[in-house]
Design a protein around this nucleic acid. Structure first.
Length: 567
RNA sequence: CGGCGAUUAGCGCAGUUUGGUAGCGCACUUGGUUUGGGUCCAAGGGGUCGCAGGUUCAAAUCCUGCAUCGCCGACCA
């Protein structure tokens, strides 16, 4: 490609509404342009990168015998009514009507469509297992689109769906997918981790997320410092502290406190937050008689809503009562566990404390020297907190470390949730009708582009991993418009590189050298060849890698093979 | 959905307090100059000041409503 015939659209200034570095650089490098909140146009440079991701994903899907299809983005409501998701899905689902006032939606995902396809096309166990995938845009009307294409409303996604007669078959495809995903992220050149994940609203049993590690990531990942264990913090088990709880050694004392901030309460009492507890009132499930339950945590810990929601006593979705007076007559800062009126669900760490401090269940009053059993009702000890750095790892080896991650892939064993609702089945070997079991496997293709930039940038711009770069090599001629020699050498090199199938950008604009260098570096082209009069005297050109290292002089004639070695 | 803020040329912004001919930098066009890291000089083009009402002799500026965009929050007692 010649830059004189290309659309570069680089920017010097940082657009003011871009928060994170990948968003800034994607705008500055001219990869995307915003059309409206969460909606982007991909320019030629951006699209080149997007296609590279797509192709790697496609190759690895085909390598495990997944078959590509295309499904409509606009989907009829009746299929979603059949699965029940027309009612279950919230405002994230963009619903539209056609000219005849029939209900449609913009597909946020494609389980219904694919289930309908397989229901119609697959009728025998001999056709199984079957994995189908697509790479196309989806629409989710996000509450708050942000960070450019990282959390857009319309975004490019690869989603695959597998269909099986048995759980063993599903497990095998799941394992194949796990390996394929690992190969994809390795080929992309990204620092990633597979982590144990919550199955969330899609439902199902077994699930891993693939995260690209980056400080701007929206998810927290807990991993062991001495094993392969990694889990989303939502899922990471917080182990109960080892050993028996210490015996009571203090008497209860009641204190008038001032202020309702935890720190303000504890400081005058000379109590550390690890030695105090806090309470959160949430709605109870229908499983128990009480209307509310009291969740109890050590004061320095955070509630994990995913874990709390899974408790049989707690209503899902979690509903936290901010006006606690309604349930208890006591303001939130003064809730405690002595003479508690509600059933207590106590986190293991809080349950292990002795001689601790808590609210007195009386406004403006706190207690110290409180002890379980001696002073409280019976309670259940449960895991409802987020793990924190330094906790023993749930795998039994090492300690927990926490990192931020960007979720770029997610694999699920769906089970029969959709196949039952949508009646997807085949006749088995024995002639019996069997409902299929399903898996679903997503990759955020457009998000990967942003995630890759988060991991690969410097003060000059993007430093693409080899596999993602929009162009592999940039040819930067010095004063080509004045020098026939430079022009001749540059044209020849350009044609030779192209003939080898290398993606090359030939900067043939009539620009000063500094402008060209700056643009090529901003766009992040990994390899650069500079051609100038000076070096041509020795029949040489200059090579430089985007990731730094010294400039090297190389012979003009060896240039193509030299570049090939660098790729 | 709640709080805050913004909306002036393609981009980044000033001007709004105190109403009086719409500005700056970058980008763009033309000519010259320069040419190994965002040259310099000169001349240009480009704006219903988000939209709709209102006040006024006069509104980017004051008032009302609406829209769009952004940040924070919507578990973290």
């Amino acid at each position: 490609m010649r830059s004189s015939q290309y659309l570069l659209s680089t920017l010097k200034e940082i657009p003011s509404d871009a928060e994170i570095v990948s968003h800034q650089l994607m705008l500055r490098a001219g990869m995307v342009r915003k059309v409206a909140a969460g909606l982007y146009t991909w320019t030629p440079t951006g699209l080149r990168v997007l296609r590279k991701v797509e192709n790697i994903v496609r190759e690895e899907m085909e390598a495990i015998n997944a078959l590509e299809i295309v499904m409509p983005m606009v989907q009829p409501a009746d299929l979603w009514q059949e699965s029940g998701r027309w009612d279950d899905y919230g405002p994230e689902l963009l619903r539209i009507k056609d000219r005849n006032q029939r209900d449609f939606l913009l597909g946020p995902t494609h389980e219904e469509i694919i289930s309908q396809l397989v229901r119609k096309e697959v009728s025998s166990y001999k056709q199984l297992p079957l994995t189908l995938f697509q790479i196309q845009t989806k629409f989710r009307d996000e509450i708050r689109p942000r960070f450019g294409v990282m959390r857009a409303r319309e975004f490019m996604m690869k989603d695959a769906y597998s269909f099986h007669l048995t759980d063993e078959s599903l497990q095998k495809t799941y394992d194949d997918m796990y390996k394929a995903y690992s190969r994809i992220f390795e080929r992309l050149g990204l620092d990633y981790r597979p982590v144990i994940a919550d199955t969330g609203s899609i439902g199902g049993s077994h699930s891993h997320e693939f995260h690209v590690l980056a400080s701007s990531g929206e998810d927290a990942i807990a991993f062991s410092d001495s094993s392969d264990y990694a889990a989303n913090v939502e899922m990471a088990e917080a182990l109960a502290p080892p050993g028996e709880r210490a015996g009571a050694s203090q008497k209860i004392e009641q204190h008038q406190v001032h202020g309702d901030e935890l720190a303000a309460v504890l400081q005058p009492l000379s109590v550390e937050s690890q030695q105090a507890i806090k309470s959160i009132i949430v709605k109870a499930s229908n499983e128990i008689e009480a209307e509310y339950v009291q969740l109890v945590l050590r004061a320095d810990h955070e509630l994990n809503t995913v874990k709390a929601e899974k408790l049989t006593q707690v209503a899902a979705p979690l509903e936290v009562l901010t006006q606690t007076e309604k349930a208890t007559g006591i303001e939130a800062p003064y809730l405690g566990v002595v003479k508690a009126k509600l059933p207590l669900l106590v986190d293991h760490s809080a349950a292990h404390l002795a001689d601790f401090a808590c609210g007195a269940n009386e406004n403006g009053q706190w207690l110290t020297g409180v002890n379980w059993q001696r002073d409280t009702n019976a309670f259940s000890a449960v895991d409802i907190r987020n793990v924190v750095e330094g906790d023993p790892s749930p795998c039994g080896q090492g300690k927990v470390k926490i990192a931020r991650g960007i979720e770029v892939g997610h694999i699920f064993q769906l089970g029969k949730k959709y196949s039952e609702a949508m009646k997807v089945g085949v006749l088995s070997e024995t002639g019996k009708h069997e409902t299929l079991t399903m898996g679903c496997y997503g990759i955020g293709v457009s998000r990967i582009v942003a995630a890759a930039i988060e991991q690969n940038n410097d003060e000059r711009g993007i430093c693409w991993p080899e596999a993602l770069a929009p162009f592999q090599v940039a040819i930067v001629p010095m004063n080509m418009h004045k020098s026939a020699r430079v022009q001749e050498a540059a044209e020849k090199l350009y044609n030779n590189l192209k003939a080898e199938g290398i993606d090359v950008l030939f900067d043939d604009r009539k620009e000063r050298p500094g402008v060209m260098f700056t643009d090529m570096e901003l766009i992040g082209i990994p390899h650069q060849v500079v051609i100038g009069e000076r070096n041509l005297d020795q029949n040489q050109v200059e090579y430089q890698s985007r990731r730094g290292g010294a400039k090297q002089k190389i012979g003009l004639d060896e240039c193509v093979s030299f570049v090939q070695q660098q790729l």
